[in-house]
């Protein structure tokens, strides 16, 4: 019993460590003064200022645009790749492909970013362009670091699936494409969705690789935060952090709620079947 109490205290201490900094940001985003240590009074001043900051708002839109495109493209390409890898019989090719897929996940972000930047700059120079970095180089980079996560989510689902399923569909007269969409895809859908969500959040959150591959004209939110925190400190950043925190929190709660709902439905279905 004593042991249990100790573990409760320990867990609580770790949670304080994890959430105290976030709580402080939340509180000081409502501070009237610019001070970071003295709370002088409640005010929404910094929120007002944030919503007047067109550059930050622009960056939010850019981030969403990039994350949606990168996650959709990498999910389609990654799912197709997983289907191909799953059918691959050549062992050498398979293990080579597996190791290459692992590279972006193991390599430090700074090396992935530098390596892509060097190539873009070199190729850009070949074509005589002064600046080759743009939205497109960022999109390519984001797709590249998202792909392994999609593949690693989809591949296990394919391996769990009955391998005869698509063959059976085709024997019954489906074209290969139809067999994939009708028989295979529903089986691996959970993996595809998890892969898509992971790719989306990885892309939203990435700073290091974006930093090295971003053009001057295209700014994402993490890059905007970086340049905001480079100069003088303003509580506008706290307001932004607070909004991000609540968006994340509500998304997490929503997905938890959705999961529970789905489980309840499944339970009810089972019950009605039993009757």
């Amino acid at each position: 019993m004593k042991m249990k109490r100790a573990s409760k205290i320990y867990t609580a201490l770790i949670m304080i460590f994890l959430f105290a900094p976030i709580a402080i940001l939340l509180v000081f985003s409502f501070n009237e003064a610019k001070s970071l240590s003295v709370f002088t009074g409640f005010s929404l001043k910094w929120y007002r200022e944030l919503f007047r900051d067109s550059e930050t708002l622009r960056a939010v839109l850019n981030t969403l645009l990039l994350a949606v495109s990168a996650s959709l493209i990498s999910t389609v390409m990654g799912t197709a790749a997983a289907v191909g890898i799953n059918k691959l019989r050549n062992k050498v090719l398979r293990s080579t492909l597996d190791s290459v897929t692992n590279i972006p996940m193991i390599n430090p972000d700074i090396i992935t970013g530098i390596s892509l930047m060097l190539m873009f700059v070199f190729v850009g120079r070949l074509f005589g362009a002064a600046t080759s970095l743009s939205f497109w180089t960022m999109l390519i980079s984001h797709i590249t670091f998202c792909l392994p996560y999609v593949i690693l989510q989809v591949l296990p689902k394919l391996q769990q699936m009955d391998q005869a399923l698509p063959e059976a569909a085709m024997d019954l007269g489906c074209t290969p494409l139809r067999a994939f969409f009708k028989a295979e895809l529903p089986e691996i859908m959970p993996g595809v969705v998890t892969g898509l969500i992971m790719a989306f959040t990885m892309s939203l959150d990435d700073f290091v690789i974006s930093y090295f591959t971003a053009g001057n004209g295209f700014q994402t939110l993490p890059i905007r935060i970086y340049s905001m925190t480079k100069k003088t400190v303003t509580p506008k950043m706290y307001a932004l952090a607070t909004i991000i925190f609540f968006v994340i929190l509500s998304l997490l709660l929503l997905s938890n709620f959705y999961d529970e709902e789905a489980m309840n439905k499944r339970r009810q279905k089972k019950k009605s079947k039993e009757k």
């Binding site: 959430f19 976030i22 940001l25 970071l36 959040t201 959150d205 993490p222 997490l252």
Partner: peptide, 18 residues
């Protein structure tokens, strides 16, 4: 996982203010 979902720039910045 909640702090993990916040950008690490913001998390680091929070410690700077502390």
């Amino acid at each position: 996982m909640i702090p993990m979902w916040m950008n690490f720039l913001i998390r680091t910045y929070a410690w700077m203010t502390i």
